[in-house]
């Protein structure tokens, strides 16, 4: 690299000379070292440890015994795992509704009216409060006896509904609660994106007679692509870490119908009745492989973007 351009006058000297010659490479490495070290110790190594533990039967106390792929075979025939996997999929797909939702609100709020800042803050509010609070609030909202939802349906003559107690609706109920803060997060991303939209292009399009949806689709949205990508990334991440909402709102129930993989792993490996470390690790590996698809996609599109920018 850059060393080649420097006059190579001290080639025959030992230690210090070598450092001096390579300092353009060494300096960034030294700065990166602490970060890399921590990343290795807390992220990379545990990933491989999980892979390793998943081949054992281990209660976290005694001697682990090697059982090969038996944990994975058990996973394949475990109905609870299947339910969790499907729920994960539901989360990933339905959570993406936050993106159009956020876009819609952002477009709606992107105007100059008195007090618009206040409205914007109010819409952003749910993202600021803790997920646990969101879970509690929606838990009460859905409560079958005194919840607002039941009061409304009863008033409409539909009888009470027990969203979180019914295995058919419970997962959707929690996703609904999760969407509330997620939509506002996407909204903020789009609001900042809309600030960067080039007014001249909008002007030009308007002269050409573009209006409404056509304007949005062909002029605004292409300019919002970085914002959309970011919203996509944070939404996927949000869907994968919905653990706290589930734990607060249903604790995985009724009868395990709202578990997702991360929750199931926690139950099997770390909860009060768990301590099947090997089995938990096997679930974690599956979850990791799912995440890996997204991570690979994100890295690839970022790489492509960087190449395109050059």
């Amino acid at each position: 690299m850059t060393t080649a351009t420097l006059p190579d006058t001290h080639a025959d000297e030992g230690g210090p000379g070598w450092i001096r010659r390579n300092r353009m490479t060494l300096a960034p490495l030294m700065f990166l070292l602490p970060g890399i070290l921590f990343f290795l110790v807390y992220v990379i190594v545990p990933i491989f440890q999980s892979f390793y533990i998943s081949f054992f039967r281990w209660d976290g106390l005694g001697e682990p015994s090697y059982i090969g792929l038996a944990n994975y075979q058990e996973l394949a025939s475990d109905p609870a795992f299947e339910v969790s996997l499907w729920n994960n999929l539901k989360w990933l797909i339905l959570y993406l509704l936050a993106i159009p939702g956020g876009l819609f609100i952002a477009l709606f709020l992107n105007q100059t009216v008195t007090g618009i800042r206040l409205y914007k803050s109010l819409f952003f509010f749910p993202f600021v409060i803790s997920q646990v609070v969101v879970g509690l609030v929606f838990g009460w909202f859905y409560a079958p006896s005194f919840g607002l939802l039941s009061q409304v349906t009863e008033w409409m003559g539909l009888g009470t509904v027990n969203v979180l107690g019914d295995p058919r609706y419970a997962t959707y109920g929690i996703i609904g609660a999760g969407l509330w803060p997620q939509v506002s997060y996407c909204m903020i991303i789009y609001l900042t994106g809309l600030n960067a939209v080039d007014p001249e292009q909008v002007e030009a399009a308007r002269l050409d007679g573009a209006k409404g949806l056509r304007m949005l689709w062909h002029v605004i949205l292409p300019q919002l692509r970085p914002a959309t990508f970011l919203a996509f990334v944070v939404t996927i991440i949000g869907a994968l870490r919905s653990f706290d909402l589930i734990s607060i709102m249903t604790n995985g129930g009724p009868f395990g119908s709202t578990r997702i993989l991360s929750f199931y792993m926690f139950e099997k490996a770390l909860s009060e009745y768990g301590f099947r470390m090997g089995y938990g690790a096997a679930i974690a590996v599956v979850l990791f492989l799912i995440m890996l698809c997204f991570i690979a996609y994100f890295l690839w599109s970022m790489y492509r973007e960087e190449k395109g920018a050059r």
């Binding site: 409560a143 079958p144 006896s145 027990n162 979180l164 107690g165 129930g253 009724p254 009868f255």
Partner: peptide
């Protein structure tokens, strides 16, 4: 015999 919605 049991109250409704006890799972909640």
């Amino acid at each position: 015999a049991f109250v409704d919605n006890h799972q909640s």
